[in-house]
Amino acid sequence: MTMYTLYMARADFAAWRDNARRLLAARVSPGEVLWQDNDSAGDLFASGDTDLPPPSETPLALKLSRQHLSRLECASHYWPAHHQECRWALLYRVVWRLAQGEGEALLAGDTDGAVVEQRVKAVNHEVHHIHAFLRFHQQPVHPQEQHAPEFVAWFEPRHDVLEAAARHFIDRMGQHRWLIMTPEGTIFCDGRQWHIERPESGVFTFQDYQALSTMENDVEDLWLAYYASTFNPARLNEKTMVRSMPSRFWRHMPERVLITGLISHARHGARRLGQDSRLADRRGHTITLPK
């Protein structure tokens, strides 16, 4: 049996699709292909053929609905942990099974379908996280610097969500110029178009980001005032907070400095009332009805 080894760029679904099409046409079963990308460790005994075989006389072909295709693409944005299966191999096995007529291969109740489903869910969840927890900081930009970003942000996603973030923030930010930096790449938008750049080698670090950004304070202070005040100590429920806003995101959110203080203050009696205790000591006044 020939083994074929395919080298994949980190985020290239189109290339995988191309390869998968040719592998199906040549009737190469999933067991005969070794997919290699940055995520998977090299195969110790790799001696595989990198040239794909010619189409077989009875080629397999598969027409996928747009919905199924976008599911596969979404699953390909999942960065597996070390013990997890390479994404391209999983996807190829799924399309191989579909091409054999096993319609269940993409359903959540199936063994492979369940993994695809779990990955799609994890990717979508991470997309949601970057939409929600990313924080822009305004930069002092000289009016003559027409290309410098006005807003910059740093974010550390677990999966490849750069494109989803780009599409989202270009809708929100109007004509502002902004830059999002992540370890695996940056998104820059000039107010009309976005552009993703991935580092040639290695990753960007938070220090790279700090080198190009300045922290601002005014709006952040207002935000902290709001955050503490909108918190209702009588309803203290830190478990739900941590479940909905995992602590790995706190590091780059301004409100991180308040969270533990608010919790312990509530535990030590502030939860008797719903009111922000900063207001309890201040003079208030009642209102008399006009005659």
Binding site: G174, H176, N232, R235, N237, M241, L262
Partner: peptide, 17 residues
């Protein structure tokens, strides 16, 4: 400024969950 697409976004959570 601004966009909506039907889905809500929770930008932060306070310790009351």
């Amino acid at each position: 400024l601004g966009a909506t697409n039907g889905n809500g976004i929770c930008h932060s959570f306070t310790p009351d969950g």
